Simulated scan of single mutants.
Amino acid sequence: MRAVQKGGPEHYGPFVKAYGPYIYRTVFAVLHSPHDAEDITQEVLLQIYRSLPECRLDGLKTWITRIAVNRAIDFRRSKARRPEELLDSEVIAERLQEDTGGISSAELLAIEQSDRQRVRERVDEMPDNYREVITAYYMEDKSYEQIAAETGLERKSVESRLYRARNWMKRHWRKEDFE
């Protein structure tokens, strides 16, 4: 690692060979998706390389593990907050293999799109101040800070509006409205 810190990128190859598989296994344990684990492993390796000048090399493996786990958790959270995301080929392939009880995969995807459209229509019926933060946070995957900057609100106000918007949805929406 000291050679990488002093020598540059050409000395990083042995590190990648030594720790790459370990990082992949760590990320895979969090994500359970080979495709996502490969992508996040690359991001972690890049982040480690960029952070090397400040690295003290004490507890190197712990430091590497922490970066890998945190990045995987961040990815999983952001993916969970993106219901509008287009399905990637891996998800489509999984769904094509599922037993659908006589319904074709194309029909299932159409039903899912219809459900998303119904949710969008219901969100459009919300009061403006709630709709704005719900759309930004859940559909556009923006952070509290981004929403605050765009709306001119304080971060705490954004949190408060999201809380009130969720309560509004609980009071005004029924499960049957989405079936």
Rank of each mutant, 00 (worst) to 15 (best):
H35R: 12
Y138M: 09
E84N: 04
E121C: 02
E94P: 14
Y49H: 07
W63G: 08
E176W: 08
I23S: 12
P127D: 00
F28N: 12
T135N: 01
L60I: 02
L31P: 13
Q42H: 02
L108H: 04
I73Y: 11
M169W: 01
R56I: 04
E179D: 12
I23A: 13
L162C: 15
Y138I: 05
R171A: 08
V16F: 04
M139E: 04
L86S: 15
S157T: 08
P34Q: 13
G152I: 00
R2D: 08
W63R: 05
F15D: 02
Q146G: 04
E154K: 09
T41S: 11
E145S: 03
S89L: 13
G102M: 02
A29V: 08
A110T: 15
A148K: 04
S157R: 12
I73L: 12
I23K: 13
L86T: 15
E10D: 10
Y137V: 03
R120T: 00
R174P: 07
I48K: 04
I40Y: 04
I67T: 05
N167R: 03
A165I: 05
G7C: 03
T62F: 15
Q97V: 08
E125F: 02
Y137F: 06
E150A: 13
H172T: 03
E176S: 13
E145C: 02
R76Q: 15
S33Y: 13
F178W: 08
Q5R: 07
I23E: 14
P53M: 03
R25I: 05
Q117E: 01
L96W: 07
L57R: 02
Q5D: 05
E176H: 10
G101S: 05
H11L: 13
L87K: 13
Y49Q: 10
A165V: 03
R2K: 11
Y138N: 06
M126L: 10
L109R: 15
G59E: 05
F15L: 06
E159T: 07
H35S: 15
A165C: 01
N129F: 14
S33G: 14
D36V: 07
G7R: 03
E145D: 06
A106D: 14
L108E: 06
T135K: 00
T135C: 01
I147V: 06
I103K: 11
R77L: 10
A93H: 00
M169F: 01
I134G: 02
A93F: 00
A136W: 03
E85Y: 12
E85R: 15
L162P: 11
E98R: 13
R76V: 08
H11C: 10
G20P: 00
D115F: 15
V44D: 03
